[in-house]
Structure formats: C-alpha cells, structure tokens
C-alpha cells in the first residue's frame, strides 16, 4: 500500500504540493490526473524517494520512505518499477541493453536468462523488433514502451507509470492499457498511473484522483468519477474528454 499524508513540497520558489493525501491499496491501480505542471510527476518521485517532502509523510507498506537509509531505499526500489515521462532511456545503450540494465547491475543472473527475460518484456510491449536500435533513432512512443519494459523487467510489486500512453497511436495505446490492467490482474501489481487520457483512466484504473493546487480536488472509484458533477472530473473524464 502506498500512502501519502498531508505532503507539502516547495521546489524553487513555488510550493508545488500543498497537503496532498492519497492512498493506493494493494493490488489496485490509482489514476492521478490533473492539469500540466500541478506536480503529478513530483508526486511519483516522492513515492520512490527521489524527493523528500518538506512536511507530511510518505509510506510504502507501512515503511516511512523519506527516512530510509541507502540500503532500505535500494531494497524499496528493487520492488518498484518506474516508467518515466518520455522513457528516460540511456542514449548510448541499445533498447535491449537499456531494458537489461536493472537486471545486469544487481542480480547475478546468467546472461542467457537476462536475455530471455528482456526478450519476453520487449514482446509484452510490442518492441522486440527494435531491440537492437538506439534511443535517439526511435520515436517517442517507442521510447515510452521501452521505458515501460524496463520498469517491468524486474517483476516489481509496485509500478509508477508517468504518462504511459503519451504520444502513442490509439491502437498501441489500447494495447498498453490492456497490458497495465493485465499486469495488475495477473501479477497483482499495485500501480500509480499519471495520465491525461480518459481512455487510460477508465481502462486501467480502479480509483481516480484529480490533482489541483497541490492536493486532490476530487477522488473516487472510476464509476463515481465518470458520473461526477465536479467541474474537474467533467473536464478530464466527461463525454468530451479524450
């Protein structure tokens, strides 16, 4: 379970998070929506300990994340996958090497097993044909899918998805949404998903929260949110929304 309670965070001169409280129960996908620049990516970075809150608490499975030492943080991060906005691949490694990176650096798996596993996750995101290409030569959507493969390669218990369908065409988007839902159902992965897309929220989400002015403005199950009269919920999830 991921729990943020009353998190405040100032970056530069602006206070980005102002009392954010959010709970992601085990085995669920929580969808975080909200206008650009409201701190959705910043929120994800708090969960995995890249940022520490100025005030408030962040817990994963009851453990306090900001107070973790390096060892504990490493242990936590081993259990978490993180899809960064735009993939964040290393440019001078091929797609396959990028995906293999978390396996190679820390586990003593034999090479053939690493290769098998990499091949398998690249297949899951539909990227096995591009395994030997370098990130600068592939499209944004392909980078994102490679990033998703890297997030899933270690069989994490938690995955943080930052805009998993940005720049994808509707067909591949649909496949990625199915993959995210499947990862939850089959591997009981807990997910925190940042997205602007109604389709993604409805297809992969169990609960939806909308972030505005540094805290959740409205939150509820997918059904509740789709029918909600709240103006933000209507803007993000109403009939006109994409």
């Amino acid at each position: 379970m991921i729990e943020l309670h009353d998190v405040h965070k100032r970056l530069g001169t602006r206070e980005i998070l102002r009392g954010l409280t959010l709970k992601v129960p085990k085995g669920m996908n929580f969808v975080l929506m909200g206008p650009s620049g409201t701190g959705k990516s910043v929120t994800l970075k708090h969960v995995i300990g890249i940022f520490k809150p100025d005030r408030g608490t962040v817990h994963v499975d009851g453990q306090d994340v900001p107070s973790m030492d390096n060892q504990q943080l490493m242990a936590l991060r081993k259990r978490m996958g993180y899809l960064f906005q735009n993939g964040a691949l290393i440019n001078w490694l091929t797609v396959a090497e990028n995906v293999a990176l978390p396996l190679k650096e820390h586990s003593r798996l034999p090479r053939s097993e690493v290769d098998d596993r990499v091949h398998q996750v690249l297949g899951m995101v539909g990227m096995d044909h591009a395994a030997q290409q370098f990130p600068p030569s592939i499209s944004g959507g392909m980078k994102l899918r490679a990033g998703l493969a890297r997030a899933l390669v270690t069989n994490p218990e938690y995955v943080l998805y930052d805009e998993p369908n940005a720049g994808l065409d509707p067909i591949i988007s649909h496949q990625i949404h199915e993959l995210i839902a499947e990862v939850r159902d089959r591997l009981s992965v807990t997910g925190l998903i940042v997205t602007h897309s109604r389709a993604c929220a409805v297809q992969c989400g169990d609960r939806i929260g909308i972030l505005e002015a540094g805290k959740l403005a409205v939150e509820g199950s997918v059904d509740e949110m789709v029918r909600s009269e709240h103006p933000l919920a209507k803007a993000f999830l109403g009939g006109g929304a994409d």
């Binding site: 890249i50 490493m74 991060r77 978490m80 735009n86 964040a88 691949l89 440019n91 650096e105 820390h106």
Partner: peptide, 11 residues
C-alpha cells in the same frame, strides 16, 4: 530524468 532513472534502478 535519466539520472533519476539510474537512481531508481539503484545505479
């Protein structure tokens, strides 16, 4: 975000 990505992978 690539530096953050390395840290998240504990590299």
């Amino acid at each position: 975000d690539e530096i953050d990505a390395l840290e998240v992978m504990s590299i």
